[in-house]
Design a binder for these strands. Structure first.
Length: 259
DNA sequence: ATGACCTCGTCCCGAGGA
């Protein structure tokens, strides 16, 4: 089973590029971030006609996440627990009913800039709630993964120019520590089990020819519980998508599970 | 050497992103 995460930066803007990639890569499941659309405006028929079940958790203009799946979904929930006052659409989960059921969480973690400030406080508070949910997933001792745009550069090797990010919310020590806290509960970063070392990115800014110069960062991650990691066959970043027609500034990350 | 982009909204600029 192939499960992908893809920050599409607007479903309307990616109305051709996303279906093109789905036809080419044919993932069984994809979690989307930044759909930037309310649920009613999401072009669900387009994806249903391609064989996908569509579950969205959208909002106007900003944020918004979704799950597309060729396999049946059960127990869909929306919103990250822990703050009933949080209006931002950044979390969705569902159980994918393959040969082995897998709990799939799609997330769009807050950017947090400028730091320090209220937006950074929101990022760290959101990560604390994420850690709580992550601990629950581990306690269930079942295959589960959390995939999405984490807006975290875990290590210097995950940026082409680490010094440029030193004071950024994506790489500040407190951001990295919060990400490590979650990893240290017992999660596995799928991509890093397959490919070590620098030079592997999932985001390139639209500005300044970042793609052409390979001035990227790795901020889209798939974190797996041990029961899920035991099923992993492969993981890849589909970087070529960034060079396509009218691309998102992010590219898909794909994990292959024996499930 | 410097500057350089893109998306959405009810919209020709500002906010947000990373």
């Amino acid at each position: 089973m192939q499960i992908a995460t893809f920050n599409i930066n607007g479903i309307k803007a990616r109305i051709n590029a996303l279906p093109d990639w789905l036809r080419e890569a044919s993932p069984d499941v994809v979690v989307l971030q930044e759909i930037k659309s309310v649920d009613a405006a999401f072009p669900r028929e387009l994806f249903e006609d391609m064989g996908y079940t569509v579950e969205t958790h959208g909002q106007k203009s900003f944020n918004g996440v979704a799950i597309l799946s060729k396999l049946p979904l059960e127990d869909v929930t929306r919103g990250l627990p822990g703050d009933d006052g949080d209006e931002q659409a950044r979390w969705i989960e569902a159980t994918v009913m393959g040969d082995v059921p897998v709990r799939v969480c799609g997330l769009y973690l807050p950017n947090g800039n400028p730091a320090p400030g209220p937006k950074y406080d929101y990022k760290l508070a959101w990560m604390a709630r994420l850690k709580t949910r992550a601990a629950e997933l581990l306690a269930a001792e079942e295959p589960a993964l959390m995939a999405g745009d984490y807006n975290i550069i875990p290590l210097d090797e995950d940026a082409a120019r680490p010094e440029a990010w030193r004071k950024d919310a994506l790489a500040l020590p407190a951001s990295r520590a919060a990400f490590r806290e979650i990893l240290n509960l017992g999660f596995t970063d799928a991509f890093r089990t397959r490919v070590p070392g620098p030079g592997h990115y999932s985001f390139w800014d639209y500005q300044a020819g970042a793609w052409q110069r390979n001035d990227g960062i790795r901020i889209d991650h798939i974190l797996m519980t041990p029961d899920c990691a035991d099923l992993m066959r492969d993981c890849r970043i589909d970087a070529a998508v960034r060079g396509g027609e009218k691309p998102s500034d992010h590219v898909p990350v794909v994990v292959d599970l024996a499930a």
